[in-house]
Amino acid sequence: MANKDNDLVRLENVAKRFGPVQPLKNVNLRVGRGEVLGLLGNNGAGKSTLMKILCGYHPASEGKMFFDGEEVNLRSVTHARQLGIDCVYQDLALVSELNVYHNMFLQREPVRGGFLGILDNKRMKADAQRHLDDMGVNIPSVDVEIAKLSGGQRQAIAVARSVYSDARLLLLDEPTAAMGAKEGAMILDVINRLRAKGEVSVIIIAHNYAQIFDVCDRINLLRDGEIVFDKRAEDTSVQELTDIVVHEYRHAAETLNE
C-alpha cells in the first residue's frame, strides 16, 4: 500500500452477503485524489453491490472503508453525501418539470427576503450557465425544462450538479449507457475536464470499456466479487482488456460444456 495518504477512498477486504448469496467476496480497492478509476466487470460480477456500498445504500458485511484517511461507517446515502460521496443516477436525480438552473440548485437555492424564501433566479441562472460552460456541458439554454433535454444532456447536468455541490467522489453507473456516440462523447469530455482539474475523484462503472478507457487513470476488473486486475491505464490497453474478457468467455463456455 504505497502512498496511502494520497488515497481519497480505500476499501479493505470488503465482503457483502445477502443470505446465501455473496456478491462481494473480498474487495480491495483504492481511488487516489483526483483520480478517475474505471471499474469493469461482467453482469453479476458485483459492480452494482460495490457501488451501493460506496454510496451508503448497503452496509458492508465485512471489511473496512477509509475516506480521506479516516475509517468510516456509512450509515446512509445522506451520510455518504455529507462526506462528499455522490452517486449520479441518470433518471433519478433530476426533476423533469423544472428548468436546468432550478435543478442545478435544488435544495441549495440562493434566496432573498429571508424567511419568505424568494428565489434569486438571476443569480442561479448566471451561476448555472457559468458552471455548465466551465464543465463543457452543451445545452440550448439553462431556461429549458429537463424534460426537453436528451439523456446525455441530463446525465451531464446531473454530474455538473454533483460537482457543484462539493462532491469529492463521484460514482457514475454506466454514464454512457443507451447513448449515441456524440452524447457519450460529451459525457466523456465532462469527465476529462474534471480529471484535468483534479479536484474530484471519479469511479466509472461500465462494461463498454473501450468507450471509457481514454478517460480513466486506472482500470480495475471485478470478477466474482473480487478485484482481479488493477493497472494504470498507460500500462494496459483495450487489447489486453479484450483478451482478458475473451479468455473469460471461453473459460465460461468450456466449463459449461464439461
Binding site: 433530476l94 426533476v95 435544488l106 437555492e109 428565489l119
Partner: peptide
C-alpha cells in the same frame, strides 16, 4: 413560481 416552497412543491410532485 418564485419561492423555495413553490419550487420544492413542484420538485416533490415531479420526482
Amino acid at each position: 413560481t418564485q419561492t423555495r416552497w413553490g419550487l420544492h412543491t413542484i420538485a416533490v410532485g415531479g420526482n
